[in-house]
Amino acid sequence: MSDTPTRDDQDRTGMPDHGGSTGSDQLLPDGDTVEQPSADTPARRYTDEQKYLVFNKEFMPHIDSMYNFAFRLTTDEDDANDLVQDTYLKAFRFISSFEQGTNAKAWLFRILKNSFINDYRKKSKEPAKVDYQDVETTYNSEDAESEHTVDLRAESVSDLIGDEVATALNSLPVDFRTVIILCDIEGFTYEEMAKILDIPIGTVRSRLHRARNLLKEKLRDYASSMGYNEESEE
């Protein structure tokens, strides 16, 4: 699709500032997250003072959303703590690849999601049952299955409480959980999600569709097990 960034790597190669740590800067936003007005200002050289200013004014205001995202991904408060801390320290270290005034929230979310995949999931208790990207292929192979509607009435789930909704959400594979969090809870646009997740918009759309079907199935199971189901319907 036309929205995949066609910007080449020119401006990245023109950014000599974080040499040394070769492996880790691929985890970081390389600037696609946001429009870059001109490639001829490659390295944003912030003074130390400016760095702290950007950090405090543009990054810190998103910390609650970031924490919530981390918690929903890891489902654990300690892990969320670590993940948020790692992410913010990384963001500070690579602050020169952030352009002031652009979409800081998307930029930060992308770092967090990458840290989650690369660092956290390896040591996580969550068994390697499904790999982040593998989920896509797994579920693609049953397309007929995922292209359906879930037979459920709005009234059947309207009495569910927050914890029950959270449990249902947590039971989804992390890939699917992620798109629901980004879209429904954080209100990102499809385009922002595509950039955060490094996937085409079409994939965002279809993954959301599948994720919601899965979620509705879980909610339906939940609602019926709680006896919320049949009120006056037959």
Binding site: I63, D64, M66, Y67, N68, F71, R72, E77, A80, V84, L152, R153, A154, V157, S158, L160, I161, G162, D163, V165, A166, L169, I180, D184, I185, R212, L215, K216, L219
Partner: peptide
């Protein structure tokens, strides 16, 4: 109605964790 309800469950009913 169902899609709207599910979205509302996620946005309004689930706790938002603060840092």
């Amino acid at each position: 109605h169902l899609e709207q309800e599910v979205k509302e469950l996620l946005t309004k009913r689930m706790e938002k964790k603060c840092c």
